[in-house]
Amino acid sequence: MPIRQISVFVENKSGKLAEVTGVLADAGIDIRALSIADTADYGILRLIVSKPEAALAALRAAGLTVSATEVLAVRLDDKPGALHRVLGALGKAHIAVAYIYAFLGRERVSAYVILRVEDNGQAASVLADSGAALLEEPEVYGI
């Protein structure tokens, strides 16, 4: 139920981000979603990719610092209020969201949200109770 996200440590210097995308391009890996958390000196690049294992291996081989984290992926109807229902349910259950990012599906009717929470199991059951659709790995990587 949780899916793997790849995080990469990237210094805030020109060309550093391109180093990462270059490695992924050479390895033929498709990026499904990405977000960056940035500080003054560095950023954490978070990626959902088509082949997480291959991406991890390629990035490590390129000498980059990477980690794999389990996150939740939720499919929403691309309509006003859909995200609010999900977050409202989590809030009511006192589940804190460490970070969140979203992207649209190719079929143009769904939106997808990546959620990082402390306890995936607990959050997943709250989301399931609220009727949200949690995605499995193959579905996400194939989006």
């Binding site: 958390a37 990477v66 980690s67």
Partner: peptide, 11 residues
């Protein structure tokens, strides 16, 4: 230098 052991996905 950031190592895998030190690294986290959270700022």
């Amino acid at each position: 230098e950031m190592t895998d052991a030190f690294f986290s996905d959270e700022v």
